[in-house]
Structure formats: C-alpha cells, structure tokens
Design a binder for these strands. Structure first.
Lengths: 154, 154
DNA sequence: GTCGATGCAAAGAATTTGCAGGACC
DNA sequence: GGTCCTGCAAATTCTTTGCATCGAC
C-alpha cells in the first residue's frame, strides 16, 4: 500500500514565499503575508473561497480580488501549484522546490473528499516516461478516482 | 519514446452510445444522436463550446442547455469521460469499455495544445498502485505539462 | 513621494435551472 | 397521450477587471 500521507507540512515554505516574493521585485504586504501564513498552515489543497472564509473567521478578511490575484501571482512564482479536480473550482497547494517530494491525489467520486498520497514506483515510472517523451515535460499530475471507504461503508 | 497517438477513432462508439442510451431507458432523440455523431468523429477531447460551434457550422444547431445536459448524461452513463486541464473549461472524450485502451494527455503550458499519448510502463505502474491502494480506485488520469516543441522553436 | 497593491463593485465566462412548448414511444 | 426532452432566457457560480484609494519602499 502506498504511503497515504498527512500531506507534508511545508516547513520553511512560508519563509521561502516571503523571500521569493521580494527577490522577484514584488512588495511584501500585509494581505500577502496573511494569505501566505494561512496557506502554510493548511494540510491540503485549498480553494479561493475556503481561504477567504478562513481569513474572515480569523478576523483578518481580505478582498476576494486580492485573494485571486495573490494566488495567481504565487502560481507564476512557482510557490503554489494550481490543481483542478473537475468540480469547477481551482485548488492551490504549496509547491516544493525542484526535486522535493511529490505527491498526488485520490478524489472520492461520491463525496469529493481529496486525499494525498505518494508512491515511489509510480513516481519512477512517470519520471522515466518524461525522459523518453518526445516533448519537454516540466510537471505531471496524477489523479486517482473512486469511491472512498467511508462512502462505501455509509 | 511513448506512443504518441492520433487518438483512437472509437469505431463502434457511436453505436454503443445509442444502445446504452436506450438500455438505460432514455429517449433516443435527434439532438442526442447529432451530438453523438459529432463527438464520434472527433479525435480529441472537445469542449461544450467547440461542440456547439461545430454543430452550428454543420447546419444543425443545438441549444446550449441541451448540449450541457447531454454531455452530463453521457458522463453518467460512462459513455464520456470528463477532463479538466485547469483552464476553466470542461472537455469530454469518448470512453472505451472497461479494459479498453487507456490514454493520457500532454498539455502545453504555453499554447494550451493538448496531445494524447499512451505508455505501457506507466499504465502498469498505475494499475499496480491501484491494487495496492487502500481505497477503491475506479479511474485514473495522468497529465504531463511542459512547453511543446513548436512553442520552444517559435 | 512614487508606484505598486488593495478593495469594492461591476463585468465576464462557463455552466445550471425554470418553464412552456415539442418530440418520442 | 403521457412523459421525457428541448430551447430560450434568466440565474448561479467562479473568476477577472476598472478604478479610486492606500500602503510599501
């Protein structure tokens, strides 16, 4: 059985985001730091709306436009990875530096719950394929779908 | 190098769709047949909008609501697979019966072009993972991303 | 002080839904 | 003929944009 992971806590990610932001010539502002912290404390891919609500609950609401703009900026800076599981909402999760551990997602077709996992064998196969591949491959994502255990039991 | 495929022409898919539709107790109507034919003659994943335009060009326009409803119905009947490459539009492609050949997609991060490919080694690795996996896995999708050759040259 | 960043509200795009009329079995 | 299906148009949902104001450097 593959390693079902309590997805990595990207220790250092928050700091790296701050640094990278400045290095790229952008301002380090309160909204951006707030968003960075909120994402850094999360364990799974988060949507713009979840982020917005969490910030509001935490007493530091941030305009939606800013949230979307920040998420997009961070994606461009390769600090966040954007994921789309086909339910019409974009999700974002911290991106680890080149060579860092990679994980993928299992999505329950019934309840929509997303679980992260990692698996060496598949990772190697994809890595190898990427080298054989005729065009330049920079990233890959794998999604497994099925009915999760709790939906089967329930 | 993996088999970059001129994605399968699902011969028989159109007929199967018709049959399956009836078997499941739905009416076989003109709009549904028209859509089925249009999809069956396509070689790659198609969006609702592309489908709509193609039908209009072909002189048999169909209301958007019907297109969306049909695509959703066909997905439920497992005649179509819905794909989402993260650009905010859903794509659909014919789904082959259980055990049929499987393919995946390479998406150019620059121009958005989608190429289909298949690869035995990766397929086996994923298949094997699915069995080891702690929860029931019914489907999987792999997306490779990178800058395609023409974007690199251009 | 300048220029980039924020937030509101309005615009946009993709998809869904309500409903009256039309098509299939 | 009854019921399912269609198509229009309006509604929803997620995301982007315009613009006046505010904050970081």
């Amino acid at each position: 059985m593959p390693d079902e992971i309590e997805p990595y806590i990207p220790s250092g990610w928050v700091g790296r985001a701050e640094t990278e932001l400045r290095r790229a010539g952008y301002h380090s502002t309160l909204p951006r730091s707030t968003i960075t912290e909120a994402i850094g404390s999360k364990h799974c891919a988060i949507t713009a709306d979840e982020l917005s609500q969490e910030l509001r609950r935490g007493g530091r609401p941030i305009g939606n436009a800013t949230i979307y703009r920040t998420l997009e900026l961070f994606e461009q800076l390769r600090l966040l990875r954007r994921l789309d599981f086909g339910d019409g909402v974009a999700r974002y999760e911290p991106m680890l530096p080149e060579g860092g551990h990679h994980h993928h997602h299992y999505v329950c077709s019934s309840c929509g719950t997303v679980t992260a996992f990692e698996d060496e064998a598949v990772e190697e196969a994809i890595e190898e394929l990427s080298e054989r591949f005729g065009q330049r491959v920079e990233e890959h994502e794998l999604i497994l779908r099925g009915t999760c255990s709790s939906c089967l039991d329930g």
